[in-house]
């Protein structure tokens, strides 16, 4: 049995996101080192702010500024940061309730180790040096000791960090109109995911044969139809297929279109003909490019044969064989 083929598959795109009013104000605010929340109908301040009240579903637009300092509500130590995460060195994931907010924001905390992190600890934002209007404008959080005297009540309870935090949390959020110069209305969020793709057993058999310039299909034990390329199962009967059969190499163009627009990254010049080809012995058409003939001379019923070039596994294209065209009746069931 030929080996199962695998290949890397990368799905990567820089998604362009329009923001809407609330995200726009929040992310523009981060650029300006200002943290905004939004007030819900029942008076809570949500940070980060959302457009719709999570309880009532009503639209909420009443923005308020909160402090860049806050309290860790829960945390987790990440000993092995992954590439795309905000810090290169081991860090803590934290939920931080900023002073003036009623809910917590997810971000990362730069700390020397898990021993230096605890629930209830005080932290502040360390701003990214370059800010564009993104959640990553908060570079990370860092541990923070409230300055004695900054808050009289807190200073009076020196050493009671959590009390101080509670006091600080009562500092009310200040109303904010959310207006900034040059507001950010969209962000680009690149996302790359890497996969290992396998076409499966039947396709691996088919691809191994293709590498030897043979085109194979598989015959259904039930309906006896030959499917090319094979998928290890008869799609109409739902039963496994195992009987290999070689088809073609000659076949008939059943239908086609002339492609006049160039696909990004495809090295094929336009116009070219993209055709459905029923190989002799196959019960359905496969798809391939037609070459070796001007595009406007390709016909339904034309007889063609595969042309391999270089080391490529797949035929580069199919060329006319010069045989007389097949009569419509001989392939109309394969359209």
């Amino acid at each position: 049995m030929p080996e199962i083929l695998t290949a890397p598959l990368t799905v990567s795109f820089p998604f362009t996101r329009s923001l809407g009013p609330v995200q726009s104000a929040f992310l523009t605010g981060l650029r300006e080192r200002t943290v905004l929340g939004v007030r819900t109908t029942d008076g809570r301040v949500l940070v980060p702010p959302v457009e719709y009240d999570p309880v009532t579903a009503g639209e909420i637009r009443d923005l308020a500024e909160v402090a860049p300092t806050g309290t860790v509500t829960t945390w987790a130590w990440n000993p092995a940061p992954r590439d795309k995460q905000p810090l290169r060195t081991p860090f803590a994931w934290v939920l931080v309730r900023l002073d003036g907010a009623d809910t917590a924001l997810l971000h990362v905390l730069d700390a020397p180790g898990p021993h230096a992190v605890r629930t209830g600890m005080r932290v502040r934002i360390r701003w990214a040096p370059e800010r564009t209007g993104a959640i990553t404008d908060i570079g990370c959080f860092e541990p923070y000791e409230d300055e004695p005297g900054e808050d009289e009540t807190a200073a009076g309870k020196a050493g009671a960090g959590e009390d101080r935090a509670r006091e600080a949390g009562h500092r009310p959020a200040a109303p904010h109109d959310g207006v900034f110069d040059a507001p950010v209305t969209g962000i680009v969020t690149p996302a790359r995911l890497d996969y290992t793709y396998t076409p499966g057993r039947a396709m691996s058999r088919h691809l191994a044969a293709l590498a030897e310039h043979r085109i194979t299909g598989e015959r259904c034990p039930s309906c006896r139809k030959v499917h090319v390329p094979p998928r290890g199962v008869c799609p109409t009967c739902g039963v496994p297929t195992t009987e290999q059969t070689e088809v073609g190499p000659h076949g008939t163009v059943t239908t086609f279109c002339v492609v006049n627009i160039k696909a990004k990254g495809a090295g094929i010049d336009v116009p070219y003909v993209y055709a459905h080809i029923a190989l002799d012995g196959a019960d359905l058409a496969l798809h391939a490019r037609i070459g070796g003939i001007p595009y406007d001379e390709v016909r339904m019923g034309m007889r063609v044969a595969p042309v391999w070039t270089g080391d490529a596994r797949h035929p580069d294209h199919f060329r006319p064989t010069g045989e007389p065209d097949a009569a419509y009746d001989t392939y109309k069931e394969l359209l």
Partner: peptide
Amino acid sequence: DPYYLAPLWPDPRALAALQARA
């Protein structure tokens, strides 16, 4: 959330660990 959370790439284990600490 594609604006506030996804850009930080917090994996499911990290989120579950926040839950465990709580």
